[in-house]
Design a protein around this nucleic acid. Sequence first.
DNA 1: AAAAAAG
Length: 666
Amino acid sequence: MAMPRKKPKSFKSDGTPKKRWSAAERAARGHKPRRSGGVRNPEARSGRFDRDDRARDRDDRGSRYEDRGFGREGNRDRDRGRRDDRGWRDDRGSGQRWGGSRSRYGWREDRDDSRERGGDRGDRFARRRDDFRGRDGERRRDDHEGREKRRRRDRDFDRDFRRDDRPRGFRGSRRDHQEHPYGRRDHERRGHYDRRSGKARGHFRESRYFDPVEQDQMSWEATTVEVEVTDDDATSGFAELGVAAPMVAALKQQGITEPFPIQRATIADAIAGRDVLGRGRTGSGKTLAFGLPLLTRLAVDEPTGSPRAVILTPTRELALQIADNLSPLATVMGLRLHLVAGGMAYGPQIKAFERGVDVAVATPGRLIDLLEQGIADLSRVEVMVLDEADHMSDLGFLPAVTTILDAVPADGQRLLFSATLDGAVDELVRRYLADPVTHEVDSGKASVTTMTHHVLHVVPHHKNQVTAEIANREGRTVVFARTQMGTDRIARQLREAGVMAGALHGGLTQGARARILAAFKRGEVPVLVATDVAARGIHVDDISLVLQVDPPKTNKDYLHRAGRTARAGEEGAVVSVVLPHQRKQMRRIVGQAGVRTEPVEVVPGSDELAGLTGARPCLGAPVTEADYQALIAPRPQQRRRPGGGRGRGPWRRGDRRDRGHRGERG
DNA sequence: AAAAAAG
């Protein structure tokens, strides 16, 4: 079969044949090896810190496990991996699986991962075959059929497993997974040796508390403020809605005096204790719309020690933001509010529950975790808030959300906020809300007049350059891409083109997520390349352009992404770069989003491009890795207070925050 | 099919 391929196998969307890179060329471009006959990728994945630290950590922990008697099998397994002459195991696979908290790069990674595990699987088969023959010679006759069967079964098993994107070691058996949204937990408490991954797993202090990845966490502390209540606080727009005076005063201190439409619409009903279904774009002031009535109502009764209100959000960043915004209001009302989110240290959250929490702002996973550990008690929750309910009712989220909703007393008040009301949200509403009042402020369409929309048609070989020139504009830009790997790649390509850009996605550690977001807020990294993790709720001032390099999946996603710009009456543009094969899809999405705009054909360097988006040619030198890392490096002084005492002491969170957000406004 | 959400 040495015949050279005459006909090109595939074509680009503009009709020209696709270049088939050789193995060396692929490697030089940083791609992974082909599925057959590739070379080992010399420059594995991004993340200098991650790789080195994890490799070191792996070795450290390997020896610790040996002490515990887990090491021998683990080592044997790793040695087998090293013998694998495809050679990917050492350089990224095991390192990632030791340190990484979850599958990192979507399906492509999964596919590679499964291939990588092919070595293991082969061995397992070999072992089984040996068992087979050794045990019973007679059965050797139907060995072939048996092998086929086993292969099929194993393949199905693997396929089912891969559908589950919890980290490998935490998956439990298939049956466990079906019964519990997060799998069984009793294996892991005791610690066990996981044959599939060849790792020791379990509740070991070492792995939980000394893991450098885990230490790459951000922290959260409650905000303390002092307010003076004056007489005219009783007459402001908020007071008329029934908001308690201390909060009115605190809001005035922040320059917030008049309620937004959605707040005006929902606050009175919510204070009256009714179930509320609020529909409005993010950025329309939803946080206060549920926060103020919730805190007003809670302050009336004596604290019970266990949470009386839970606010549930789909992303950690959003939970953080809500907790930051509501924390000062809670303190002036004498209520204790705490953040309960994954990726962050357990200690402060556990301590908070020990001291007593009135309001928990939570992401689902960690809350369930604490619930199952018996740390959080939701049996006395009076008010339950679901933010971004349309996202929370996604297939992947729903089990966790209903678990929490079921753990909360059924007769409590429920406030549900959602940008849209589709079937899934409706189901949640019917199951958990009693006689809700619906308030709709913005429709599900793009109604902000300060926002302009552009659809740019480009040919494939121009896309990267057009992207880079737009990103090189003046001002803060968010670039949305579909996949985690895509954001990493685009951010890297932008830096190579001389544009300071960083990637934000759920595959990063929480600390890395926080740092890149902080650098973006400070303005030091003016371009943020993000997955849809940043599409909802995240508020950063002065984002003047949202660039979509991959089309959003739905019109909802379009509007959520668009909602990052043109906030609070500012100007903003939403620009979508569209390839020929995406035109139809994009036209549909834009139309459904209620946007009227004519697509424009653009080429790099053109006047139209510059006129519509402020694009500038990329003339600067590539951003060096060192320069970039310096901007997103951990800043210990932001996260550690002198003296060490947590939750006490003279330091005020306000001081800290001022420093952390240095330069945010210019 | 992706991303998000626990460690």
